[in-house]
């Protein structure tokens, strides 16, 4: 269980800063900065730039993702934006439009 959960049906408009992991099942508009893992579940929507640790996306993201770890775009994910991370996977069934920067 993530320590911060934006549940189904909940909308945050603004900036979320976290030292711990964040799970988005609802909607976040604004900015997301997390020291730890960020998970965007099926049905979750993030319209924000994300700066964090590992990111797993199975929902919608509109915005740039910058991770100091890995980014996994899972089946069902829809991502529009640039992804910057050390390791990136894009699963079959993930939709992705944007640039990849693997920071080599």
């Amino acid at each position: 269980m993530a320590s911060t959960v934006i549940g189904v049906g909940i909308t945050i408009e603004g900036e979320v800063t976290s030292e711990e992991d964040v799970l988005v099942q609802g909607t976040l508009r604004g900015k997301l900065i997390a020291k730890d893992a960020v998970t965007i579940d099926h049905g979750g929507t993030v319209e924000a730039d994300i700066a964090s640790g590992p990111v797993a996306v199975a929902g919608n993201v509109t915005g740039n993702i910058a991770s100091n770890d890995r980014v996994d775009l899972q089946n069902g994910a829809r991502v529009v934006g640039n992804v910057k991370a050390t390791r990136i996977t894009i699963a079959d069934g993930a939709q992705f439009k944007g640039n990849v920067d693997m920071d080599v």
């Binding site: 993530a2 320590s3 549940g7 945050i12 979320v16 976290s18 711990e20």
Partner: peptide, 20 residues
């Protein structure tokens, strides 16, 4: 769960709204 939890080490600057 329709619940939201703003964890101990998390700060939100903005509006929180919704059903849960």
């Amino acid at each position: 769960s329709r619940d939201a939890i703003i964890g101990r080490a998390t700060r939100v600057r903005g509006r929180i709204s919704g059903e849960g």
